[in-house]
Design a protein around this nucleic acid. Structure first.
Length: 604
DNA sequence: CCATTCAGC
DNA sequence: CGCTGAATGGA
């Protein structure tokens, strides 16, 4: 492997000039012009692309030959002009960029003022689409899976150095160049496989363009009201200590309220309350159990109250300020594109997809997320997206008519389940029907529904029976998808995303039934994921075309949160709603509810 | 590191 | 009954 030899020469720029070779397997439809390509991999001081910095860049354009450009090594000569040279190549739209986890590299390069453009080929995402059930799509794992070549991790080989920047250039070159090389080799191999599996359209039309959208969302971040969060923390602290004292007095002793083990002893041994549910390790103290116990004793409801507030305080109020980026003063989550088995995104550090919304505290916590000065937050929610996708895929006439006529679906279901006119549906009947509708989407079972509604499985079974009587299209759809899963071993979404369900062949009934529920749920949940990803890409593009300053900040599965300059609010609301509603044309209309406000609670 | 619990869709 | 991530306690 050569060491950055070309960069040592005075003709630096030539090393990254475009070449006019045609990569063997590029699809004509997606690359009308001959395309040059460049595989690259950034080495940095750490894993956070918004706070760590680049140490060096590995480049590779042909098998067996890669280069490493050191830029911030200690005790070594760095090639400081490298960024100027690389900028030309990386911002050249005609050059295909190959890499493993390109969102990371794109974000890293932005710190240097380099805005990567053009078609992407991310081998991590190729691996994910080919095997969405796999938990780990790291370069180590993917090359282990598909190549003879076995890559070692940094810790395994160079772990004695505390940071990449401490490495001697020879070691750094060896390590980094290998990564760029592996990405190029994987690209050729995985591309064939994507085509074999019919996944190339999903890959090039959705997942690759989405990388740029997610990179923009992550670098935008969201603003937090620091004063308000400090106030809430103090208030919760006071509330918690009051409840704590009450709990000790009711229990007759001090104990660790956060320990289910100790709580178990107090509730079931000392106070002799009736346990209703078991876990692997003993009696459960979960919410539904405590709600039942609350009818017989004062302690369980105090525990519930304590748990709720403690959770809110530790997971949200106290955790979020620690993650404020010192440079931007904002919270920058990571959107992971290769985690879920269904095609959804996930969010971490912090998870901004599970910020509380229910109850008084939910609203108060969402008030912490605010728009920048002179801006508004715009929230756009798909209404009943999963049931609409089910309506489309099952072609059930009842569901299709309901959505075509914009009917309240849960009230409609209640009237069907209880055989009464819609006007006579009570709040409680609607609640039951809502749970049944969720159950349908999850791959309903009498056991699951009985747990959710806290009713006998027999009773749950009659609801399910009644539902299918009214929706034979849904019943047929479910039978067919299970049949298909048995035949092929996988299920697919609207956009052709695949999820293997090998457990469908299990001899074990409960494993097999679980696989059947996944087979039912995945096309629905995954279809909704496909849909909102398309909407995100289109909105991102439209905002740029119209030179609007508004930015997408968050995606919460069926909701988008944007930040817009106040004067753009109306036009952005109109644009976002329209793009979301026409992202795909289904046999039922898509409905989007859109609001705005100075904070996330108001915008909702 | 696993189990439990719970926040969201 | 589907899909997640984070905090905690306890081995």
């Amino acid at each position: 492997m050569e060491q950055f030899s070309l960069f040592k020469s005075s003709k630096g720029p030539e090393t990254v000039q475009t070449v006019s070779e045609m990569p063997s397997a590029l699809p004509i439809a997606h690359s009308p012009l001959p395309i040059a390509y460049l595989s690259f991999d950034i080495e940095a001081t750490g894993k956070n692309p918004l706070s760590d910095s680049i140490v060096g860049i590995a480049l590779c354009r042909e098998k067996g030959k890669a280069y490493y450009v050191p830029v911030r090594h200690k005790y070594a000569t760095n090639i400081l002009e490298a960024f100027d040279i690389l900028k030309k190549a990386l911002e050249d739209e005609s050059i295909l960029k190959i890499g493993h986890n390109l969102k990371y590299d794109i974000l890293m390069l932005r710190q240097e003022g380099i805005h990567v453009k053009g078609m992407l080929y991310d081998t991590m995402l190729a691996s994910y689409l080919l095997a969405p059930n796999k938990p780990d799509h790291s370069l180590e794992n993917v090359s282990l899976e598909y190549l003879v070549h076995k890559k070692k991790t940094f810790t395994e080989t160079l772990g004695k150095y505390s940071s990449f920047s401490e490495l001697p250039i020879d070691d750094a070159t060896q390590y980094a160049a290998e990564d760029a090389l592996l990405a190029l080799e994987l690209k050729e191999l995985l591309f064939e496989k994507l085509i074999d599996e019919g996944l190339e359209k999903l890959y090039f039309d959705i997942e690759m363009p989405l990388i740029y959208v997610l990179a923009d969302m992550e670098s935008a971040g969201i603003m937090i009201d620091n004063d308000k969060i400090a106030g809430l923390s103090k208030e919760l602290e006071r509330e918690l200590s009051v409840i704590e004292i009450k709990i000790y007095s009711l229990a007759g002793e001090k104990f660790n309220i956060n320990s289910p083990l100790q709580l178990r002893k107090i509730l079931f041994d000392k106070l002799g309350l009736k346990p209703s549910k078991k876990t692997k390790t003993g009696y459960s103290t979960s919410m539904d159990v405590l709600v039942e116990l609350a009818k017989t004793h004062e302690l369980p409801s105090e525990i519930l109250n304590y748990r709720t507030l403690y959770k809110l305080k530790t997971t949200y109020i106290d955790a979020i300020p620690k993650l404020i980026n010192s440079r931007t003063g904002r919270i920058h989550t990571s959107f992971n594109q290769t985690v879920t088995a269904t095609g959804r995104l996930s969010s971490s550090e912090p998870n901004l997809q599970n910020i509380p919304i229910r109850g008084e505290w939910g609203a108060r916590i969402r008030e912490i997320f605010i728009a920048d000065k002179g801006h508004m937050l715009v929230s756009a929610d798909y209404s009943q997206i999963e049931l609409r996708i089910l309506a489309h895929m099952s072609n059930d006439s009842g569901l299709i008519n309901a959505f075509k006529n914009d009917i309240d679906i849960h009230t409609e279901t209640a009237s069907e389940l209880f055989g009464i006119p819609k006007e006579s549906v009570t709040v409680d009947m609607r609640r039951v029907a809502k749970t049944v509708n969720f159950g349908v989407v999850y791959g309903i079972s009498p056991f699951g529904l009985s747990e959710a509604l806290n009713i006998p499985p027999k009773k749950a079974a009659t609801y399910i029976e009644q539902y299918f009587k009214k929706h034979p299209g849904v019943r047929d759809y479910m039978e067919n998808i299970i049949k298909k899963a048995h035949e092929c071993g996988f299920v697919t979404t609207l956009m052709g995303r695949k999820r293997p369900v090998p457990e469908i062949w299990s001899a074990n009934i409960s494993i097999r039934q679980q696989a059947e529920r996944l087979a039912i749920n995945t096309p629905i949940q995954g279809g909704a994921a496909d849909l909102i990803k398309i909407a995100m890409i289109n909105i991102h593009k439209k905002l740029a075309e119209k030179n609007l300053k508004a930015k997408i900040l968050l995606q919460i599965h069926d909701e988008l949160l944007l930040e817009a300059p106040e004067e753009e609010t109306d036009i952005v609301k109109q644009l976002v709603k329209a793009e979301m509603e026409k992202a795909l044309s289904l046999s039922v209309p898509l409905k989007v509810e859109i609001c705005h406000g100075k904070n996330w609670a108001e915008a909702h």
